[in-house]
Amino acid sequence: MAAAAAAGAGPEMVRGQVFDVGPRYTNLSYIGEGAYGMVCSAYDNVNKVRVAIKKISPFEHQTYCQRTLREIKILLRFRHENIIGINDIIRAPTIEQMKDVYIVQDLMETDLYKLLKTQHLSNDHICYFLYQILRGLKYIHSANVLHRDLKPSNLLLNTTCDLKICDFGLARVADPDHDHTGFLTEYVATRWYRAPEIMLNSKGYTKSIDIWSVGCILAEMLSNRPIFPGKHYLDQLNHILGILGSPSQEDLNCIINLKARNYLLSLPHKNKVPWNRLFPNADSKALDLLDKMLTFNPHKRIEVEQALAHPYLEQYYDPSDEPIAEAPFKFDMELDDLPKEKLKELIFEETARFQPGYRS
């Protein structure tokens, strides 16, 4: 834990890192770190609560700039109880001085990944967590956004079992017609939660990839272990087919990539493993919904509104309290091709509203 900075004593240090967030945020305490930044909790002297502050230093890398800009653009436009918001952003007053960006968010005690390492969940908890994931996802999908990296560590939890989806750095506007060349190379989302079509096709992607990830998360809540822990690309596919069985001819016809289709045709026939054999203690309604989410063919996979209306979630289902976005989200430009200098300018502009004396 960093010592509390005395008023006016300059930035606090946390594990050798400068955290320049005073005077409003003090009493910093280390939480963890990701690929390009550290997260601390801090005391907000204005709202009198502890908050989470993520320090991001992305400006050396085009990919990190892209992810940072995506996350900020999306989260500043989203407003939903099951999606983490941005409360404040701290950065230098000029673009030349801006080396880091500090993002202030609600402090959540833990995440689903940490929880599943230590606790076996009751059916009631599984049901409530799944409902909140789908409630947040309904809003995301209504904005025409794909999260693309749903996994237990991106689901934040607090002691009252509130759940918030975080990390929109890989999110995209849904565009089933656009052929994202190089899709697989830039697709760094965790393999275990990846839909089979991501490994088999490169053309376009749809909201059904997020539903697949939610199915993987439900299976993990039922058993405290990942359902498809593939060691590499082909191993991942083999794990999936080992449980779902061989795809039907109709399902194979959806695979545009001939090499991928021929690979699947070359494999020995596998039978589907019954879900109640894998999860003998699970609620039968939970397994019915799991089956509809972990469907090989993305066109037959359940959609988020149908999933919310499934009998497993009937005690929570309330369409009048499951809000959607006001308007579909649009990125003005494809960020993939922009140089990091341009992305830095866009991050600077996007964060201006939090600067003292800002006038829109």
Rank of each mutant, 00 (worst) to 15 (best):
F183V: 14
G215E: 14
E186G: 07
P339Q: 15
R77F: 01
S248P: 09
L338I: 07
F329V: 06
L130F: 05
D20A: 11
C161P: 01
F129R: 05
N123S: 11
R194F: 10
L107T: 07
L346P: 10
V39N: 03
E349H: 02
I211D: 12
K330P: 02
H80I: 04
Y43C: 11
R77T: 01
E197T: 05
Y113I: 10
N281P: 00
H61K: 02
A195L: 03
F354Y: 14
F59M: 04
D88W: 00
S142V: 05
V14W: 09
K203M: 12
E220I: 07
K54A: 06
A6R: 13
P93F: 01
V46M: 08
S29D: 02
G32R: 03
E12V: 14
A4W: 06
E12S: 14
A307T: 10
T160E: 13
A6C: 03
P93R: 06
R67P: 03
M333Q: 04
A189K: 09
V49A: 04
K117V: 09
V145D: 01
Q97T: 07
F331T: 00
V14S: 04
A219P: 12
K272P: 01
H125D: 13
D100L: 02
L130D: 07
A92M: 00
R353P: 05
V173M: 12
G37F: 11
T94P: 13
N238S: 10
Y128I: 08
L184D: 14
H120I: 01
D179W: 06
D111T: 04
K99C: 04
G10M: 12
A327Q: 09
C40F: 11
T160V: 11
F129Y: 14
H125K: 09
T94D: 04
I324Q: 06
Q315D: 09
D177C: 05
Y316F: 15
V46F: 11
L241G: 11
L156F: 06
L267D: 00
K342E: 13
S29G: 03
E186A: 10
Y36I: 10
S360R: 14
G169F: 03
A9K: 04
E303F: 01
G182M: 06
Q97H: 15
T160F: 11
L237H: 09
L294D: 07
P196E: 13
Y30M: 05
V18T: 02
A219W: 13
V273C: 04
Q306Y: 01
E349D: 15
E12T: 02
Q355D: 09
E12N: 11
A42C: 04
P274F: 00
P23K: 00
F331S: 08
W192C: 14
N154F: 07
V104M: 08
P298W: 04
K99R: 09
Y312C: 09
L218W: 11
G22K: 10
A325W: 03
F354M: 14
S223G: 12
H125E: 12
K342N: 15
N281I: 15
L335E: 11
L241R: 01
L290I: 07
D167A: 14
I227P: 02
R24S: 14
G245K: 06
V14G: 15
Y131D: 03
R277H: 07
V304E: 06
A5S: 14
V46Q: 05
D124C: 04
Q306T: 02
K151E: 10
E303Q: 00
G34M: 02
D175T: 03
E220Y: 05
D336S: 02
Y139E: 12
I324V: 05
D321Q: 09
T26H: 10
L244C: 04
L137T: 09
T185M: 10
F329L: 15
L184N: 11
C127Y: 13
A352C: 06
F348P: 02
I217G: 07
L28H: 03
K270V: 03
L155W: 00
L218K: 07
I140C: 12
L112R: 01
F354A: 07
N144G: 05
C161F: 14
K270C: 06
K340Q: 09
L28F: 11
I302C: 06
L222P: 10
D167H: 05
D20V: 14
I72Q: 10
K117A: 12
R15V: 09
P268I: 03
Y193G: 12
P152M: 07
T181N: 10
A325E: 13
E33Q: 01
